[in-house]
Computed example of a mutant assay.
Amino acid sequence: MSRTMVAGNWKMNTTPSQGASLIREVMEKVGTPATRVVFGVPAIQLMQAQELVAGHTNYALAAQNMHQEANGAYTGEISAEMLTEVGIEYVILGHSERRDYAGEDDDLINVKIQRALEAGLQPIYCCGEKLDIREAGNQELVVGKQVEQALYSLDPDQISKVIIAYEPVWAIGTGVTASKEQAQEMHASIRRMIANQFGTDVAQNMTILYGGSVKPNNAKELFDQPDVDGGLVGGASLDADSFAAIILAAGS
């Protein structure tokens, strides 16, 4: 089974009508993609977007967040079970913006991952270092700790359903992209960690995405690296031409 995937994280952008138009336009430009394509749309658009992608090969949806409890008095929150009942397949967890703005840490993210898996969702787990960590040369240590805290409690069957997205925080929304060598180095490091904990077969089958200012002009050189299986794309996923070009780069 191919490891490749391109996921778009729209964040808090697009109205429902704009989102529907964007999905239709991307699908028209790409046709049936050679890689898995995931739209990470705002929660209010999930049910509408699911109707648009249903029945189309290699297209799916991701929620941008979910609560760690199955139900309860949590005003404004959405549960994993609510997502799966309407056909959502993926959920983005651990994004640096959730860590920074909502105070989420890897212990909480681990609980969310467990809940997502129990409900039948596939987590897209985000990890990555800030600029001062990179400048100090401690990126493998810090990312390794994130991976350990969030994922090592899982069993081999559970971890096989997790997608990891390495997103250097210093490259998210800044226009600065990790070089292809930097991306490959960290992706290979993450894959080694998974192999050491869960075995070589699990590691070789795991999808590890790169996120951080992925654009049409750098996507192919990033995706051509042996351990980079695609991208978690932010701003460029909001433009149909750009996102379609990135998808095509992953499938080439």
Score class of each variant (00 low, 15 high):
residue 91 V to H: 03
residue 245 A to P: 15
residue 195 A to Q: 12
residue 63 A to Y: 02
residue 167 E to I: 10
residue 167 E to V: 09
residue 81 E to P: 12
residue 174 T to D: 01
residue 128 G to Q: 03
residue 34 A to T: 13
residue 168 P to A: 11
residue 61 L to Y: 00
residue 27 M to L: 06
residue 228 V to Q: 04
residue 230 G to P: 08
residue 66 M to K: 04
residue 239 D to L: 13
residue 63 A to N: 04
residue 197 Q to F: 06
residue 22 L to F: 01
residue 4 T to C: 15
residue 59 Y to V: 02
residue 124 I to H: 04
residue 133 I to Q: 11
residue 159 I to L: 08
residue 238 L to V: 11
residue 23 I to L: 11
residue 57 T to Y: 15
residue 214 V to F: 03
residue 132 D to S: 15
residue 178 A to L: 02
residue 82 M to P: 11
residue 34 A to W: 08
residue 5 M to R: 12
residue 25 E to T: 13
residue 129 E to R: 00
residue 120 G to W: 09
residue 28 E to Y: 12
residue 185 E to W: 07
residue 181 E to Y: 09
residue 210 Y to M: 04
residue 10 W to A: 02
residue 107 D to K: 14
residue 91 V to F: 01
residue 225 Q to A: 11
residue 246 I to E: 09
residue 26 V to Y: 10
residue 6 V to G: 08
residue 7 A to P: 05
residue 196 N to M: 13
residue 139 Q to D: 12
residue 48 Q to H: 13
residue 228 V to W: 08
residue 244 A to P: 09
residue 224 D to R: 08
residue 171 A to R: 03
residue 200 T to M: 12
residue 46 L to N: 05
residue 76 G to H: 01
residue 28 E to M: 11
residue 169 V to Q: 05
residue 125 Y to A: 06
residue 213 S to Q: 02
residue 242 S to G: 11
residue 81 E to V: 15
residue 104 E to I: 09
residue 159 I to T: 00
residue 77 E to K: 05
residue 134 R to L: 05
residue 53 V to G: 07
residue 164 I to Y: 00
residue 36 R to N: 13
residue 78 I to P: 02
residue 147 V to S: 00
residue 130 K to R: 15
residue 239 D to A: 14
residue 129 E to G: 02
residue 69 E to N: 10
residue 8 G to Y: 00
residue 145 K to C: 10
residue 169 V to T: 01
residue 221 E to I: 10
residue 62 A to D: 01
residue 129 E to H: 01
residue 47 M to F: 14
residue 99 R to D: 10
residue 191 R to Y: 07
residue 209 L to M: 05
residue 187 H to E: 01
residue 15 T to S: 13
residue 145 K to V: 09
residue 180 K to Q: 12
residue 243 F to I: 04
residue 67 H to T: 08
residue 84 T to H: 15
residue 176 V to R: 12
residue 163 I to L: 07
residue 128 G to F: 02
residue 171 A to M: 06
residue 143 V to N: 00
residue 208 I to P: 00
residue 56 H to R: 13
residue 161 K to M: 05
residue 50 Q to K: 15
residue 174 T to L: 01
residue 27 M to I: 07
residue 216 P to N: 06
residue 45 Q to E: 15
residue 204 Q to C: 11
residue 219 A to H: 04
residue 138 N to Q: 14
residue 175 G to Q: 06
residue 222 L to Y: 03
residue 130 K to M: 11
residue 22 L to Q: 11
